[in-house]
Computed example of a mutant assay.
Amino acid sequence: MATLQLNLPSITWPRNRPVFRSILRPVQCAAERQELFNRIAPVYDKLNDLLSLGLHRVWKRMAVSWSGAKEGDTVLDVCCGSGDLAFLLSERVGVKGKVIALDFSREQLQVAKSRQRERLKECYKNIEWVEGNAVDLPFPSSSFDAATIGYGLRNIVDRGKCLMEMSRVLKPGSKVSVLDFNKNTHPLTTSIQEWLVDNVVVPVASGYDLATEYQYLKNSIREYLTGDELEKLALESGFSAAEHFEISFGLMGNLVATR
């Protein structure tokens, strides 16, 4: 595990497969998590800025860079939320590229679509939003040149199945970049993380009447995987190589796995 301090591909879709916008798959993830992200959708972006002092934008740019996405690529963002990574991916692949952004929260997708309408860059028109299931991706195998998932894998019940699906839809040699909180093995860093959740995250969220919704965060990090465990899971899920990087003194982490 490493530590870090700080043209257009042609896809042949099955003849009877509907276009992306019409795909609505039943979501098998925990219903309460889906409900939670629906509830916080209206203030999700504002809280991200407040709680990270804007640093989440830096971490997301790092994650997109690690994905290896380049101009003209067709790329996938799973658990896209309100679209931060999808917009960054769009800028990298350009107007000749394509970004497919998937999430199980309809409300988050509505926020993402409204942000897309408000933005003027031509490349943002290449993003398509899909309501769907991260453990049952509605795409053919070997479809994408790169993929990302930001702050999503931790909230998926069957993480191995999610990574298997991402491995399936990636082309050989392509990468997935997985950004999330880091489950640190150092007691001091763990204590700092938990103190921040109790004394910063929850109090700030309470100002938006969302204290209960954000109290889940500490337990979700405790139940997540360490960097070594993520590397092992990626290899077991079909990836040929995997490396986990610790960011911001170990508070965040990014898994990079190669198909």
Rank of each mutant, 00 (worst) to 15 (best):
C80V: 05
P140D: 06
L217S: 06
S22V: 05
L53E: 15
D73Q: 04
A31C: 11
C79K: 01
P172A: 01
Y124L: 14
L163D: 02
S114M: 12
F87C: 02
R115P: 03
S143A: 15
V75W: 03
F20T: 10
R33M: 14
H186G: 13
V75M: 04
L109H: 05
T226H: 00
S143E: 14
I149S: 09
E243V: 03
L55T: 14
A41E: 14
F87H: 00
D158G: 04
A211G: 13
G160P: 06
V176E: 03
A147F: 06
Q5F: 13
M1N: 08
I23V: 06
A147E: 00
L163Q: 06
R33C: 10
R57W: 12
V197R: 04
I221K: 07
R92E: 13
S174V: 05
A2F: 12
A234D: 06
G94Y: 07
G97Y: 02
D136N: 15
S174L: 11
S105H: 01
G54D: 05
Q108N: 02
D45V: 08
A86I: 07
G54L: 07
E122T: 09
R39S: 10
L196N: 15
N254H: 02
E194H: 10
Y151K: 12
F139Y: 09
G152K: 03
G94A: 11
N48T: 08
T12E: 15
S248T: 04
L55M: 15
P42G: 08
A86C: 05
L53S: 15
V93G: 10
V197E: 07
V75Y: 01
K175M: 08
E128R: 00
K175D: 13
S240I: 01
A242R: 02
V169E: 08
E213H: 11
L53K: 13
R39H: 14
K98T: 03
Q215Y: 09
N133R: 09
A112S: 05
V75G: 03
A205T: 06
F144Q: 07
Y224K: 00
G238R: 10
N182C: 13
C162H: 03
L85F: 02
L179D: 09
T3C: 13
W59L: 05
S248G: 04
R259K: 09
L50Y: 03
V178I: 14
Y214D: 05
Q215K: 11
V201G: 01
